[in-house]
Amino acid sequence: MAEYKAASALREHMLEGNPVTLLEAILLFGVRNPNAEFTRIKKDRFLIESREVPMAKVIRRINEYAVCKVPEELPYKEIQLTEYWIKK
Rank of each mutant, 00 (worst) to 15 (best):
R40P: 05
P34V: 11
E16G: 02
V20R: 04
N35M: 04
F38H: 06
E12R: 06
A25M: 13
A36G: 06
A25G: 14
A6C: 05
A7H: 09
A7Q: 14
A6N: 07
P19V: 02
R32Q: 12
L15K: 01
N35V: 06
E16R: 01
G30C: 05
P34K: 05
L23F: 09
H13I: 00
H13E: 01
F38G: 06
T39C: 02
R11T: 09
P34T: 13
G30K: 12
E37V: 15
R32G: 03
I41H: 07
A25Q: 10
G17M: 00
N33M: 09
A36Q: 11
F46T: 07
A6W: 03
L47I: 13
K43S: 11
M14N: 07
L27K: 12
L15Q: 10
L28I: 13
N33W: 00
L28E: 10
F46V: 09
K43R: 15
E12S: 07
L23P: 03
L10I: 04
G17W: 00
N18P: 02
L47S: 12
P34Q: 13
A7F: 07
E12F: 11
I41D: 14
K42W: 01
L27I: 15
E37K: 08
L28N: 12
R40S: 14
G30S: 05
G17D: 00
M14H: 05
L15N: 04
T39L: 14
N33S: 15
R45H: 11
V31A: 08
P34M: 15
R32M: 04
R11C: 01
F29V: 05
M14I: 03
G30R: 12
N33E: 12
V20G: 00
P34H: 05
L27Y: 08
A36V: 08
R45M: 06
N18H: 14
F46E: 06
G30D: 10
I26K: 15
D44T: 13
L22P: 00
I41C: 02
K43N: 13
I26H: 14
E24Y: 04
R32K: 11
K42P: 00
A7P: 00
F46M: 03
P19I: 02
L22H: 07
G30H: 14
P34S: 06
A25F: 08
A36Y: 04
L15S: 03
E24N: 07
A25N: 12
M14Q: 05
R32E: 14
T39S: 11
R11Y: 15
I41G: 09
